[in-house]
Design a protein around this nucleic acid. Structure first.
Lengths: 106, 106
DNA sequence: GAAATCCTCAACCATACGGTTGAAAATCCT
DNA sequence: AGGATTTTCAACCGTATGGTTGAGGATTTC
C-alpha cells in the first residue's frame, strides 16, 4: 500500500475528516476528540490509528492521556497528485484562498 | 455516504489513480484503459464504476465500445476541503505550479 | 444468420473496514 | 495499596472491497 493509498483511504471517512478539522483548533486528547461523536472511544481510537498510520496525525503520550496533533504536511503529496490531475486550476486559487483564508490560520 | 467519501475512496487505489492519469492524455475506451494492467477486464470495469459513481469519470457508450472521459471538476470539492485543512499552503503554490506545470496542459 | 468484439453481470473468495463489547494496561489520586 | 481515569487490545459481527471466473447482452462484421 503506497503512502497515497493510506492518506486517501484515511480521508474517505466523515468521522476522520471531522477529527482532522477539530484538530485545526489545536491539539486535543483522544477523549476530547471522541466527545462530539456518538461512538465508542475504542472506535475513535481506531480512527486515530488510521490517521496516524497515514501520517496525518501525530500522537504523543503524556501521562495517562495522549494528545493528538495535526500533521498537515502529510497532505502535500495528495495536493501534488491532485494538481497534476488538473483538479486545482491556477485561476481558482485566489478565489479559494479568499473563501477559506480564515481556516488557514488554525 | 457523502460526495467527499466517494471521491476520496475512489482515489485510494493505485489502479484507479493510474486510470485517471491515463485519461489526462484524452478519452479512452474501457479496453484501452485495461490494457496496461495485469488484471481482468471485469476488474477494470468495476474500477470504472467506482470512478463514475464518484463523478471523476463519465462513460458514454458508442456502439459496442464505451469511451471514458475525465471529469476533473469532481476534484474541486476535495481541493476546497484540503485547502481548508492547511495542506495547501499559499507559499507552496508557485513552487508546485512550476514543478507540475506541464501536467496541467493535458 | 452466425461469429467475433466489447463490455457488464452474477456468483464466489479472501481480506479489510467500521462498529460493538469486555478486559487489560498505564497512570494519577487518596 | 486501592480506586478512578484514559486509552488500547482482542474478539466478534455485518458489510464492503478487490480480485477471479463464467455467462450473457449488445453491437459490428462476415
Amino acid at each position: 500500500m503506497s503512502d497515497l493509498d493510506l492518506v486517501f483511504a484515511a480521508l474517505a471517512d466523515a468521522t476522520r475528516r471531522a477529527i482532522l478539522t477539530a484538530l485545526l483548533d489545536g491539539d486535543r486528547t483522544v477523549g476530547e476528540l471522541a466527545a462530539p461523536h456518538a461512538m465508542s472511544l475504542a472506535a475513535i481510537s481506531k480512527h486515530l490509528q488510521i490517521l496516524t498510520r497515514a501520517g496525518l496525525v501525530r500522537q504523543t503520550r503524556a501521562g495517562r492521556s495522549t494528545t493528538c496533533r495535526l500533521e498537515p504536511d502529510a497532505l502535500r503529496g495528495v495536493g501534488i497528485w491532485m494538481q497534476g490531475l488538473g483538479g486545482f486550476d491556477p485561476e481558482d486559487y485566489d478565489a479559494l484562498e479568499a473563501l477559506l483564508g480564515p481556516l488557514l490560520d488554525g
